[in-house]
Design a protein around this nucleic acid. Structure first.
Lengths: 206, 206
DNA sequence: TGTTTAGAATAGACCGGTCGGTCATGTCTG
DNA sequence: CAGACATGACCGACCGGTCTATTCTAAACA
């Protein structure tokens, strides 16, 4: 008869909190293991949620991942706004804060878990057009946020104006994501430190 | 009795050419689908080689991939030498040629298949220590080749000397691999073009 | 030169396990 | 009673890897 005695794992309880929990745990797992290496069952077991519930909330692993990407973007964008529009710092300082924060975080975990978007991009861009589009959208969205910040810095004369802000933003993100990737593989924060040095002391200064 | 009538698919014939063929095809497949998404059977079917042969030449998928990485490095390094030590061009021109070549190639295939090392790095660095080490080794090896080229350019006064050559090389590769990744996902060569512009006209010029 | 034979290489059925996904059933709530 | 949600057995496909049997080849020996 099973009387709902709580000898079982806590259970997230409530109704659509299950959905959110599924998103959070899946996000974490894909963060460090990628799409293919993250199994649905694995996520389910971690949360003690049955298979059927998963397919009640999502109709496929692929679409589930689209939602994970959006979920991630939502929180990451919020962080970006907080950092890149922080009125207590100048635009250049904000960019620097962004890098320093990441450097600290990444360094603390031996450079694992670089960036969910980067990881999924490399793995899935050529495998799933749906995911590729979603990832592309997020990338461009983030770039625009950096563009605004850089533009503000150019207007105040703090950042070199030899290139349009969008160009500098694109380069900034190329360099940073490449540095994170290389740091992850070499297990060394040096690529990130190098990037910061040259980016801030040469490129943005102009 | 089976009298070896050739109604079957051509067969690669010869002896350890099979091994090489296995490496080549596996390399191609992992190039565009990554490690996990490339199945052994798939490689075998493409070459019409039986399972037994595969495990005669390699003892696991993981070690097979290590050999693929080395195989790839071997040919890629040769290309790098050809380009980065080309006596008919100045060091700066050589770096430019490297980028232009890649830009053309990548652009011709809608930016798919960025770089085998980059793809495997993002996917496998955290999953397999063996592969991570191999990838890391290759990355550092390539960086050293760029370092030499940049150093030569600094000596001839062609490249800015505000930073040691190894630093510029690291930044160069961070930026380039990030650009390739972003190009792949956004299906647009713009990140690469932006990188080339700023790298050559701002950073290296100094 | 012809015969034997060890081992390389071919061959593919088969293994346990896992994958993403389905479905019939049960329960809880409005 | 209707619909949202829970539950987990079950499905076929496929995964990496093993196993035994066979064929090919080249050196050893007569």
């Amino acid at each position: 008869m099973k009387v709902r005695d709580d000898k079982m794992t806590p259970r997230v309880s409530g109704k659509p909190e299950v959905r959110t929990a599924l998103l959070n745990v899946g996000m974490d797992m894909m963060f460090e293991k990628g799409y293919t290496n993250t199994g649905i069952q694995e996520i389910l077991t971690a949360l003690n949620v049955p298979k059927g519930s998963f397919y009640h909330y999502f109709d496929s692993k692929e679409n589930y991942t689209v939602e994970i990407i959006r979920h991630f973007d939502q929180s990451y964008s919020a962080d970006l706004v907080r950092i890149l529009r922080n009125p207590k710092e100048t635009p250049l300082q904000r960019l620097r804060t962004y890098c320093d924060n990441n450097l600290t975080t990444l360094g603390a975990q031996k450079c694992r878990r670089g960036c969910l978007i980067g990881t999924l991009s490399q793995e899935m861009s050529d495998q799933s057009e749906i995911l590729r589009q979603e990832l592309s959208t997020v990338m461009l969205k983030w770039r625009d946020m950096f563009t605004s910040c850089i533009e503000e810095g150019q207007q105040s004369g703090e950042i070199c104006t030899s290139r349009p802000p969008a160009v500098l933003a694109e380069l900034f993100l190329c360099g940073w994501s490449g540095a994170v990737m290389r740091a992850k593989t070499t297990q060394n924060t040096e690529p990130m430190e190098t990037f910061i040095d040259v980016m801030f002391n040469v490129v943005l200064k102009g």
